[in-house]
Each structure stands twice: as C-alpha cells, then as structure tokens.
C-alpha cells in the first residue's frame, strides 16, 4: 500500500513485547537465560576464574566485531580482519623480539612496534577502502583477496614459524587484563560515540542505507567508506596486540578461525548485512553470547568437533531468533 493509515495502538500486550524484542537487550537476556541453564550443568561456569578467562577471550573478538560493525553499517563487509591480525602480529613480533628484533631493545622498541602494528592495520584497511570506494570493486571480493594476500605475506615473512621470545613488557599490553580491559572498553566506547553521536556516524548509516541518496545529499561517500575500513583495520591491529600478548608469541596463523565468530557476533548483535543498521551496544551483547557458548562448551568437556557443530547450530538458531524478533518489532 502506498498510503499507510495512521497507525493505531495495537493490542496491549503486543507493545511491551515488541519494544523488548526490538531492543538491543534481547541478546543480553538470551545470554542470561543461557547462563542460568548451563550453570548447574557445567562445573565452574559461574566461578571468578572462569569469568576472567571469559573476559580475556572476549576482548579481541569485541574489538574485531566493533570494527566490523562500522564496515557493515556502511554497507560493506571486511573479511580481511584475520589476515590483518596475522600480519600485524608478525610485524610486531619481528620488530620487537629479543633475538633479532628490527628495532633492537632500545626504549623506543616497544612503542615503535605498537605504532608499526597500528600503521599496518590502518594501511590494510586503507587499501581495502580505496579499492572499494575508488575502483568500485565489490567489498566481498576485495577483502577476500586481501585476506589471501596479507595472510600469505604474514606466512612468507616468517616462513610459517611462530616468533617467540617477545619482551614481557610488550606481551603485557594485551596479555594482562589490567591493560587490555580499559583499552578495549575505551575503544568500544569511542567507536560507539563515533557511530551514534557524530556527523561521520550519521554519514556511515546514510551511505549504508542508500549510497546514491547520500551522494546527492553531499555526503563524501568515498571518504566515509575508506574511514570505515581504516577503523576496522586499526581495531584488528589492537586485537592482534591482545592476542599476541595472550599467546606470548607472534604467529602468522593467529586468529585464523575468528572470522566466523566476528560475523556471527555482529549479526546476532543486530547489525544488518545489507548495511545501514546496527549499534555497538547490540554487538557487545552478541560478542558476549558467542564467547559464552564457546566457554561453556569447553567447560562441558565437549570434543572440539562437537563444539564446532554446536556453535554452527547455535549461530543458526540465534540468526533465526533475530529474524523472528525483527518481524515482531515490525508488527503493528
């Protein structure tokens, strides 16, 4: 119908149900329910130690998902994040390791290595963005090829060997929760504000919703697109810093299996793969949900093959629930 009559109030029970289903907190409730059901089943699920390990494994995924959200909102997709992790990890390791580090062991070695990692992450994002915005190549193919290319470079640089003997001060940045948690929280907060409260954020949504309208409305579409990929690359570099710190080695296969988790967490968190929709708060809960499942299945002592299968099934279930709640939110 072209003419929508003014919308009347729906039945009394629909409205609260609708607003609940449509809110970001839906996934949080889902996580809580899951937690309550699993607590009696999985030994040690509700312990402090487990909570800490949960948070530790959550932070890198959170940063990746937040960066991915920026890209998805702008109407693209970034499959290259895991390659960015590998590449920056390897570069950082090569620069700072105590045996043959490029930067030696001077006072500037560690800040230099971190800067190098950030610059490399931003650089990968910049190249992705440039190819997509300037050459108008499809984001899926661009980031897929850059996934192949940069993870290839990471493997080639190290001849497929992990790099050990990293200085403890370096690994502490990501490995110690006291550092990692505030940094991740701050970055997430800034990314949230940037998306919801700034001109750039509005522009991202506008480009993702309808790039032609955005162009006619004077939005610098290309710059905005490049920005999204640079942010994704930067956050992937920080995630790499965390993962490298946690593993205490730099490795060209670091984070290799995280891509699926990143996409799953963002989609469950309410970000649309078609662009123009999604919020950081929802993504935070999506990440929590994914990691909760991972963690609980590990505690249940399940075989890793079963974990893989269960995770697949849970992702499907969550995606289906998400579609269902969207429908509910659209009702009335």
């Amino acid at each position: 119908m072209s003419s929508a009559p003014s919308r009347p109030a729906a039945a009394a029970w629909v409205t609260p149900l609708r607003s609940w289903a449509g809110s970001d907190f839906f996934v949080l409730v889902l996580s809580a329910v899951y937690f309550l059901i699993l607590t009696p089943l999985a030994p040690g699920f509700a312990s402090t130690g487990n909570a800490l390990s949960l948070i530790t494994s959550l932070l890198p995924l959170l940063l990746l998902a937040v960066g991915q959200t920026w890209v998805l909102v702008s109407g693209g997709i970034d499959l290259s994040v895991t390659a960015t992790i590998a590449l920056t990890s390897v570069l950082g390791g090569l620069a700072v390791n105590e045996v043959s580090g490029w930067l030696g062991s001077g006072p500037f070695a560690i800040p230099g290595a971190i800067l190098l990692m950030l610059a490399a992450g931003a650089g990968v994002g910049f190249l992705n963005g440039l190819a997509i915005a300037r050459l108008r190549m499809p984001p899926f193919m661009v980031t897929l090829t850059s996934l192949m290319f940069f993870s290839g470079v990471a493997v080639w640089l190290t001849q497929s060997q992990p790099i050990g003997s990293l200085p403890p001060t370096f690994t502490a940045f990501g490995g110690r929760l006291g550092w990692a948690l505030p940094v991740a929280a701050l970055l997430t907060w800034v990314a949230h504000l940037g998306l919801s409260r700034t001109v750039l954020g509005r522009w991202l949504y506008a480009v993702g919703q309808n790039a032609r309208t955005a162009e006619v409305s004077g939005v610098p579409v290309r710059t905005v697109t490049v920005c999204a990929y640079v942010v994704s690359g930067l956050l992937a570099a920080v995630a790499s810093l965390f993962l490298t710190g946690q593993a205490e080695t730099a490795s060209p296969v670091l984070g290799q299996r995280m891509l699926l988790d990143v996409i799953a967490a963002t989609v469950i968190g309410g970000v649309s793969l078609y662009g123009g929709q999604g919020r950081i708060l929802g993504v935070l809960f999506g990440v929590l949900f994914i990691r909760l499942i991972d963690n609980s299945l590990n505690l249940l002592g399940l075989n890793f093959t079963l974990i893989l299968m269960t995770k697949g099934a849970v992702i499907l279930l969550a995606a289906w629930l998400d579609g269902w709640r969207r429908q509910l939110a659209r009702m009335a």
Partner: peptide, 23 residues
C-alpha cells in the same frame, strides 16, 4: 523457510559440516 540471510545460514552449515566431518 526460516528466511535466514544466505551468508549466515551457509556459514552456520559450514561450522556444522566441518565439525561433523572431523567427528
């Protein structure tokens, strides 16, 4: 039927299939 986005649906089956095969 469940109206899942193809990318997510087949990603889920990828997980399930890989796990099943390894098992």
């Amino acid at each position: 039927r469940l109206r899942l986005i193809a990318f997510v649906a087949t990603l889920g089956l990828l997980h399930v299939g890989r796990g099943l095969g390894l098992w």
